[in-house]
Amino acid sequence: MSEVYSVDVQITAPVYDTEVPDRVADAITNVFPGAELDHKHGEIVGETHDLSHFSELLHRREILDTARGAFFENRQGETFSFDLKKQAAFQEVANFAVGDPDELGEIHVRVRVIEPDVETVIDHIAPPTQDGRPVETDDR
């Protein structure tokens, strides 16, 4: 039986005067293709309920452990958040922003888990690994 995953994902990214807003929007939709975006003065905000493409990008780059660390480090109750580099996202690459902020700013993502729970959703997006490979479980 397949698990039901229900999440609300809020995405925000600053748009600086030197940037083209449509390129920032493209960066977001390259990582979150189903996101509904709204252009506001100085930023783009978006919402989605699907993290499957983002999960694919994490698997493709083989950065599941990095992702899990970022998710659990920024977990608060039933939410977790993380920042992605805009320039990488424009190239359809998931690259976590850590340390000093990037000069173009970052894409901030906040995930609120409705069901089943945060740990299960994180395991689905970025499964635990052993020797760099996802650990297979009975329900995968």
Rank of each mutant, 00 (worst) to 15 (best):
L51P: 00
T129P: 08
H59D: 13
V109S: 03
D139E: 10
V109A: 04
L64S: 11
T48Q: 01
G105C: 13
Q87Y: 13
P128R: 08
I44D: 02
G69F: 04
V9N: 02
I63F: 09
V9C: 05
E19T: 04
D117H: 14
R60F: 10
V98D: 13
L84Q: 03
A70E: 15
V4D: 12
A27F: 08
A94C: 12
G69H: 09
S52M: 04
E103Q: 14
T29V: 15
V135R: 13
F54N: 01
E119M: 09
G42P: 07
N30T: 15
G34W: 00
P116A: 06
V121L: 04
R133S: 11
V31M: 07
A67Y: 05
V31T: 11
K40Y: 02
A67N: 08
V15I: 06
I107A: 04
D17S: 10
A35T: 03
T48P: 01
D65A: 09
Q10H: 10
T29R: 15
E36S: 10
H49Y: 06
V15E: 00
H41S: 05
D131T: 12
H39Y: 10
A94Q: 03
G77D: 14
D138K: 11
D138R: 11
E3T: 14
V15D: 00
E119T: 14
R112A: 11
H39G: 01
H124V: 03
D22M: 03
Q10P: 00
I114W: 07
K85M: 08
P127R: 05
R140H: 10
D38K: 13
D22E: 09
N95A: 15
G99S: 10
I44C: 03
V4H: 12
Q76S: 06
E62D: 13
D138M: 09
G132Y: 08
T129G: 07
A88H: 11
D138E: 12
K40G: 03
D26F: 02
S2A: 10
E19S: 03
T48F: 01
Y16F: 14
F90T: 05
Q10R: 12
R140Y: 06
E73L: 07
L58M: 07
V31I: 15
I122M: 09
T66W: 06
E115R: 15
D26W: 02
V7Q: 01
E56S: 12
H49F: 02
A89T: 13
L64N: 11
E36T: 12
V111M: 09
V113L: 05
Q87S: 14
F54M: 01
R140V: 12
